[in-house]
Amino acid sequence: MATTRLRKFYPLPAAAAVVLLSLAGCADPDSAAAEGAGSTATAGNGVVYNTSPDQDRIRSQKDAGLAAEVPADIAEDGKLTVASTGGSVPLSFHATDDKTVIGTEIDLAQLVADKLGLELDLQVTSWENWPLKTESGDYEAVFSNVGINDERLKKFDFASYRAAYMGFEAKKDTDITAKGAADIAGKKIAVGSGTNQEKILLAWNEELEKDGKEPASLQYYSSEADTILALSSGRIDLNLAPYPSTVYRENTRDDLKVVGKVNAGWPTETLVAATTERGNGLGPVISEAVDALIADGSYAQVLERWGLEEEAVPESEFFSEDSK
């Protein structure tokens, strides 16, 4: 069964507080669609990524007991309305037809809908829009690499389904490593505005300034494609992005590598979770559904399909401010 527990997510230093209040997230908000024109990309670790609109998704079976637990107002239309941003390979991104949104987040949302006996109604949204539309009830759940933090817990409930990490990536011929604040001093680093990545870097820059060291210069680009071009051409030293995306590029390109990894909840830990309106009763049911998917093996199949076994969790946890 899913557990109901609340971890303490400690606030970041003052320099990052304003970003926290913006409900910043794990995902890059406006990154590009799938890289390359082909419908498959074979990774260095042997994973074959299918980027075509024909996904032949892994599916699961309805659990009548869980279906009966879905709040009546949500179950009424027979659909689970899920929002995702379509902004980061291999999590949630546009297929080669530039229309169909695919990725591990979509596959997991499909599995949850199956388990609850509902049709998946996928809605593509911007990173900025999902909070308001989830609060208003337009979206019943968000599957888009959303990390849990204290500020979000004031407005949403969460059912965890993946570990949450960020990866530093650099050109393959560099000797840079990035594990903490000291490693980024004076470096030019690309980061998405209003993301957990930015919060981490702002906090590390504050540490550097207190120690009398040169802070990193944060660089902002309008798309993931522009960011990667800047990195590969040597105009910036590092990019900090969702770890699955950095691993994907390391394994499908010959010019980039991962040079560091940090939990998205630094200085503590957090998880990626399905996000629902606070107190509407859906979050606990999704958490139980994820546990059922872990038990029947379909959860592991999806993560293996997208090369994300490293981010698997042994169970789902339900997080709610109301459970304090």
Rank of each mutant, 00 (worst) to 15 (best):
L132G: 12
A190N: 11
A141C: 11
G283T: 09
E311K: 09
S126V: 12
S52R: 08
G25T: 12
G180N: 02
N263Y: 02
E304S: 15
E315D: 09
P244H: 05
E105H: 15
N251G: 14
V146S: 06
T177Q: 14
G117T: 04
M166Y: 06
A300C: 13
E119Q: 12
E169D: 08
Q219W: 04
T270C: 08
D107F: 03
D211N: 12
D77H: 07
V82R: 00
G283L: 07
T174G: 05
A170H: 06
S323V: 15
K171E: 13
D175T: 10
L108W: 04
A159K: 08
L208G: 03
K62G: 00
A241R: 09
L238H: 00
D114Q: 02
R162F: 11
L23E: 13
E304V: 11
E119D: 14
G137L: 03
N251M: 09
N196Q: 09
A14W: 12
L80E: 01
N145W: 14
S245I: 05
R278T: 10
S287W: 13
E76V: 13
T246M: 07
L240P: 03
D226H: 08
V19N: 02
S136H: 07
G167H: 02
K133F: 14
S245V: 04
L202F: 00
A241D: 11
S52T: 04
A37P: 08
